[in-house]
């Protein structure tokens, strides 16, 4: 059995004696944007860390093109899979350009000079993320949204085929959330992204995976997955799901204790 791309097969993981991931399988379709949803502590971040090779599964296996991540070697993996962490910071006086250039590290030997391909990859990543005119800005002067874009540009400079992101829209205002997800959805990469906002996930993801207490409780296209029943079961809140003109579902939460009739559109 050889499967193309990144794949988790019945992976479990215990952390501090607690089972945080319990037999999860995930094989993103090539080029698809897969949204990981679920309450806090449902195992989204742990699953992403396993897919990134930062954690090893207690049982089960994560493979890239059919080969176990453990056998691949860090550098080979870093040329294929790029990771954007939830929140990153540095004390160093880095510029945007310095930070994006880090993405070329897996492609160069220890003493190899900068190649034309390195320059091209960094330039393309800056252009793609709209940061070309901010290349000389210091990291410390950037807003939260700009910092996230820098990290995505760094990830793109790695020229990966798989991109993993852990809640990249956290702490961003709504416009920047849209900007960021537009950028991600247009990338020709297989993307796995942990998100909190169900509606944004429904709008931008090709597939959704809903996690709860370390297990996958639903997976599939957004309209199949995001149902009132599932939201009540996983999140413990009451919601009304309608269908938008674009075909994707829209989730409207209902305040508990308030009867639905009173919340209807007046």
């Amino acid at each position: 059995m050889t499967c193309r791309g990144l794949s988790a097969d019945r992976v479990s993981r215990t952390l501090g004696g607690r089972l945080v991931l319990d037999g999860v399988s995930l094989t993103p379709e090539r080029g698809a944007t897969v949204g990981l949803l679920g309450p806090n502590g449902s195992g989204k971040s742990t699953l992403l860390r396993l897919l990134a090779g930062l954690l090893e599964p207690t049982s089960g296996i994560v493979t890239l093109d059919g080969r176990s991540l453990g056998d691949l070697g860090r550098r080979v993996l870093a040329r294929r899979v790029a990771v954007v962490e939830q929140q990153t910071d540095t004390q160093l006086p880095l510029t945007v350009l310095d930070a994006v250039r880090l993405g070329r590290i897996p492609h160069r030997g220890a003493l190899q000079p900068v190649s034309a391909e390195d320059h091209a990859a960094v330039r393309a990543a800056l252009d793609h993320t709209g940061l070309a005119d901010k290349a000389d800005r210091r990291w410390q002067t950037l807003s939260g949204g700009e910092r996230q874009r820098v990290q995505i540009a760094r990830a793109l400079a790695q020229r990966p085929r798989e991109l993993l992101l852990d809640e990249p829209t956290n702490h961003l205002d709504i416009q920047h959330q849209f900007d960021l997800l537009n950028l991600l959805a247009d990338l020709p990469l297989t993307t796995v992204v942990a998100l909190h906002d169900l509606n944004l996930a429904a709008m931008y993801c090709d597939q959704l995976v809903i996690m709860d207490r370390g297990r996958v409780v639903a997976a599939g296209r957004p309209p199949e997955v995001l149902t009132e029943e599932l939201i009540a079961r996983v999140y413990g809140v009451h919601a009304v799901v309608t269908r938008e003109p674009g075909g994707y579902p829209h989730v409207r939460f209902v305040r508990s204790g308030v009867r639905e009739r009173e919340c209807g559109v007046s």
């Binding site: 930062l54 080979v76 870093a78 990153t88 880090l102 993405g103 897996p106």
Partner: peptide, 11 residues
Amino acid sequence: AFGEDAAATLG
């Protein structure tokens, strides 16, 4: 620059 996890994902 961005920590040990970031370094690990850069190979």
